[in-house]
Simulated assay, not measured.
Amino acid sequence: MTSPRDLSPAAVQLAALARGVREDDLLWPTPSSNYLVGDLLEHVDGLSRGLQAAARKESVPQDELRDGDRHQLRPGWGDRITEQLDHLVRAWAEPDAWEGETVEGGVPLPASMAGMFVLDELVVHGWELARATGQPFEASAEDVSALIAFLESLPPMEDSEGLFDPPVPIADSAPAQDRLIALTGRDPSWSDGSAPAR
């Protein structure tokens, strides 16, 4: 069983990145080939609400299971996502959130595993937003180490319902954060060149 983790460092960073997205960033590409920045931001908007339900062992409203559609992104995303991520952290800070079984994304699974998938969403989408919009990003070493161990413990991709794209080959000597990103099927060296560093 995975021990409960404090999601606040990853959530605070993701919230800051969301607040840093500008209107003219929304059509820029991201490391996820199916998403532009606006799509990714709308996905984060939805998951920052929907993943609270998994902590409380509640059903997720159907409209919060969206894959990400920039056309549904409502104004005020920065403040809204910040508030929702704060509620998400509080929900997963409850002692029983990591115990028993829950449902996440329509899939029944142990709550401790669901909590780690939440952490993965926060860290990886934070990295994607940062890379796509030229904002700085560095996940906590503790979160990166825990996520690498968690993801490496999962069954082979063909047996794990396609949760991620196949891992990107990377040297064992690469920085830990790059190895984590590669494990989730993203290219750690991705750059579109559109976003100037901020």
Rank of each mutant, 00 (worst) to 15 (best):
M1Q: 04
S3G: 10
L7V: 06
P9S: 12
P9M: 06
V12L: 01
Q13C: 13
A15T: 03
A16W: 05
L17G: 13
L17T: 11
A18P: 04
V21K: 08
E23P: 03
T30F: 13
S32K: 09
S32L: 12
S32F: 12
S33V: 09
N34H: 14
L36F: 11
G38P: 01
E42P: 02
H43Q: 15
G50H: 04
A54R: 01
A54W: 07
A55N: 01
A55G: 08
E58Y: 07
S59N: 08
P61L: 08
Q62L: 10
D63H: 09
E64Y: 09
R70S: 11
R74K: 12
G76V: 07
W77L: 00
W77C: 00
I81L: 05
L85Y: 02
D86Y: 08
H87K: 15
L88W: 10
V89T: 08
V89R: 02
W92I: 01
E94R: 00
D96F: 01
D96W: 01
A97N: 00
W98L: 00
G100Q: 05
G100A: 06
E101H: 00
T102F: 01
T102A: 06
E104H: 15
P110A: 10
A111R: 07
A111S: 09
A114D: 09
G115D: 09
G115R: 08
M116Y: 13
M116W: 11
F117L: 14
L119I: 12
D120F: 10
D120Y: 09
E121H: 11
E121D: 15
L122S: 13
V123A: 14
H125R: 14
W127S: 11
R131Q: 15
F137Y: 08
E138Q: 11
E138G: 07
A139Q: 06
A139S: 04
D143E: 14
D143S: 15
D143I: 13
V144P: 02
F150V: 03
L154T: 01
P155Q: 01
P156M: 02
P156S: 00
E158V: 06
G162N: 09
G162W: 03
F164M: 08
D165M: 14
P169G: 04
I170P: 06
I170D: 05
D172A: 10
P175N: 00
P175H: 00
A176H: 03
Q177T: 07
L180V: 12
I181A: 00
I181W: 04
L183M: 07
T184L: 03
T184G: 04
D187P: 04
D192F: 12
D192L: 08
D192A: 15
G193H: 15
S194W: 11
A195K: 14
A195N: 15
